[in-house]
Amino acid sequence: MKFHAKEDISLPRQIVFDHVSDFERLEKRAMRRDIEVKRTSGQGPLDVGTAWRLKFQFRGRSRKAMSEIVRFDAPEIVEIETETSGIDLRTQVDLIALSPTRTRLALSFDMTARTLSARLLVQSLKLAKGSIEAKLSERLEEYGRELESRASA
C-alpha cells in the first residue's frame, strides 16, 4: 500500500533539506502529539543507522515502533524504515531542485502487512486512500508554508 504527496516550496533545496533532516525539531513536534520518542543510536550527527524507539496510542491501544534511517543522501533523499505491530513502513523524502530558489518536496509511504490483523488495517486504509492522500497533501502544504515563513523571518 503506497501513499504519495508532493509540494513545491520557494526555498533552495539545501535549506529545505536542513529543515527536513532536523530530527530534533521533529522529535519535539511528535512529543507535542503525545508520541514518546527516544533516540537509540547516540547523539551524533544523523546518518544511516540512526534509530528511534517510538511509543504512541493508535485506535485506543498503546503501540511501539522502531524507526531507522536506511538512506541519507544529502541534500536529496532521506529514507526511513519503521517496524510496528505487524506492519513495515518505508518513508521516503525526495527533494528535487526545480530552480536555484524552488524545491519540490515529495513524500511517499510504502506499507506492508506481516500479520492478519495488520492486513485488515491496511485494507481499511486502502478504502480511505483518497482522503488519506488529500490530508497528507494538505499537511505537506502547511509544512511548506511554515518553512517558507520561518526562512523569511
Results as ranks from 00 to 15, higher is better:
residue 20 V to I: 07
residue 81 E to L: 05
residue 100 P to K: 13
residue 110 D to K: 01
residue 134 A to I: 13
residue 77 I to K: 01
residue 113 A to I: 04
residue 23 F to P: 04
residue 2 K to R: 12
residue 115 T to Q: 10
residue 133 E to P: 13
residue 54 L to Y: 01
residue 54 L to K: 00
residue 149 S to W: 07
residue 33 R to G: 10
residue 6 K to E: 11
residue 26 L to I: 14
residue 80 I to D: 00
residue 122 V to Y: 06
residue 112 T to C: 08
residue 93 V to Q: 06
residue 25 R to Q: 09
residue 127 L to G: 03
residue 58 F to D: 08
residue 59 R to G: 03
residue 63 R to V: 05
residue 117 S to T: 14
residue 150 R to P: 09
residue 140 L to P: 13
residue 8 D to I: 14
residue 11 L to G: 05
residue 39 R to G: 00
residue 37 V to N: 00
residue 135 K to A: 13
residue 33 R to C: 06
residue 45 P to Y: 13
residue 57 Q to K: 05
residue 31 M to V: 02
residue 109 F to Y: 08
residue 26 L to K: 15
residue 53 R to P: 04
residue 92 Q to A: 04
residue 88 D to Q: 06
residue 143 Y to P: 09
residue 48 V to K: 01
residue 58 F to L: 12
residue 18 D to A: 15
residue 9 I to W: 09
residue 116 L to Q: 10
residue 32 R to H: 10
residue 120 L to S: 13
residue 151 A to Q: 13
residue 16 V to R: 00
residue 43 Q to V: 13
residue 27 E to C: 08
residue 142 E to S: 09
residue 38 K to Y: 02
residue 73 D to Q: 04
residue 111 M to V: 12
residue 82 T to H: 04
residue 125 L to T: 02
residue 109 F to Q: 03
residue 85 S to G: 13
residue 142 E to V: 12
residue 11 L to P: 02
residue 148 E to M: 11
residue 52 W to F: 04
residue 151 A to G: 11
residue 59 R to Q: 06
residue 41 S to W: 03
residue 152 S to I: 12
residue 25 R to N: 06
residue 10 S to C: 14
residue 10 S to K: 15
residue 71 R to W: 00
residue 127 L to V: 06
residue 136 L to E: 08
residue 26 L to D: 14
residue 88 D to I: 02
residue 143 Y to S: 12
residue 139 R to N: 15
residue 40 T to S: 04
residue 134 A to T: 15
residue 69 I to M: 00
residue 112 T to S: 13
residue 73 D to G: 03
residue 6 K to D: 09
residue 52 W to K: 02
residue 76 E to R: 04
residue 77 I to A: 01
residue 96 I to D: 14
residue 67 S to G: 07
residue 66 M to C: 11
residue 84 T to F: 08
residue 137 S to D: 08
residue 149 S to R: 10
residue 82 T to I: 02
residue 50 T to K: 05
residue 18 D to G: 15
residue 89 L to P: 05
residue 143 Y to G: 10
residue 90 R to M: 03
residue 133 E to L: 12
residue 101 T to G: 09
residue 97 A to D: 14
residue 67 S to F: 03
residue 147 L to N: 01
residue 137 S to M: 10
residue 124 S to T: 06
residue 126 K to L: 03
residue 62 S to H: 10
residue 111 M to L: 11
residue 142 E to P: 06
residue 106 A to D: 11
residue 90 R to W: 03
residue 56 F to Y: 12
residue 130 G to P: 08
residue 131 S to I: 13
residue 26 L to V: 14
residue 110 D to M: 00
residue 125 L to K: 02
residue 37 V to E: 00
residue 67 S to M: 11
residue 71 R to S: 01
residue 49 G to N: 07
residue 61 R to P: 01
residue 100 P to N: 15
residue 104 R to H: 08
residue 71 R to N: 01
residue 55 K to H: 01
residue 2 K to Y: 05
residue 145 R to L: 09
residue 45 P to I: 15
